[in-house]
């Protein structure tokens, strides 16, 4: 579904991504792991068109490198940024409606379904997003992206700063999303979550992919974990 090949990206003169290559298949949960500053978030920002790409990014067979963010979103890629970026002055309902690409859109997710999955959001449907808790904001942000019926979503650190109970809810939601055929590219620092829900993993270091495997194989690769993941 998503094929990234020899992807380079720069912030000014800094060469951040130095030939990143990986793939995500339909319905798969793939995690990008690594320490802070290795280029995981830059990778998904580059795929989304927020950072200028140098290299090949193919989605459902189509080259998307160089396309604008809204065009990439309309091709079926959803993006949940690390800072959540909910619209604080709009209500929960309005935040969710913004995720729809058109009013006539009928996809895998709709307002009623989202509200039944997250009664908290339903109860606060007419409350402005700015007053929600961190966990509720994260759920809102993910649901808003789902409303656009993407074929793949890229999620940046969804469990950052959340209570353990909410982290478990997020993990369950991600598995539910994958069950419905939506591929997930997850950028995560919490190794236990990634190991629990991912089908495959990539470990990044110095702007490159330095390890590819499954949760089981990574558990066996002590040297990789020690050198690139553990603090």
């Amino acid at each position: 579904m998503l094929e990234v090949a020899d992807l380079h990206a720069y912030y000014g003169k800094s060469h951040i991504l130095q030939g990143v290559s990986f793939q995500v298949q339909e319905g798969e949960i793939v995690s990008l792991l690594g320490r802070n500053g290795v280029g995981r978030s830059t990778t998904i920002k580059t795929i989304m068109g927020e950072v200028e790409p140098h290299g090949s990014i193919r989605f459902k067979g189509e080259e998307i490198a160089g396309k604008k963010s809204f065009e990439i979103a309309n091709l079926g890629i959803g993006y949940v940024p690390e800072n959540r970026d909910i619209f604080p002055t709009l209500t929960v309902r309005q935040n969710l409606q913004l995720g729809l690409k058109s009013m006539r859109q009928e996809g895998r997710w709709n307002l009623e379904e989202v509200f039944s999955m997250f009664p908290n959001l339903a109860e606060r449907a007419d409350v402005v997003g700015g007053v929600l808790s961190g966990g509720e904001q994260q759920m809102l942000c993910m649901c808003r992206t789902l409303m656009g019926d993407p074929d793949m979503i890229m999620i940046d650190e969804p469990t950052e700063g959340l209570a353990p109970k909410i982290v478990a809810q997020v993990a369950n939601l991600l598995q539910e999303i994958a069950k419905r055929g939506v591929a997930i590219l997850l950028v995560e620092q919490k190794l236990n979550i990634a190991l629990k829900i991912s089908h495959r993993l990539y470990v990044m270091g110095h702007g490159q992919v330095i390890y590819e495997g499954t949760p089981d194989s990574l558990m066996q690769a002590d040297a990789v974990r020690a050198e690139w993941l553990e603090v």
Partner: peptide
């Protein structure tokens, strides 16, 4: 609603598929 959101968060609105 899209205009209101685009005023404060143009990048996020673009990422949701709005031009």
């Amino acid at each position: 609603i899209i205009i209101q959101a685009a005023i404060t968060h143009p990048k996020t609105v673009a990422n949701l598929g709005h031009n």
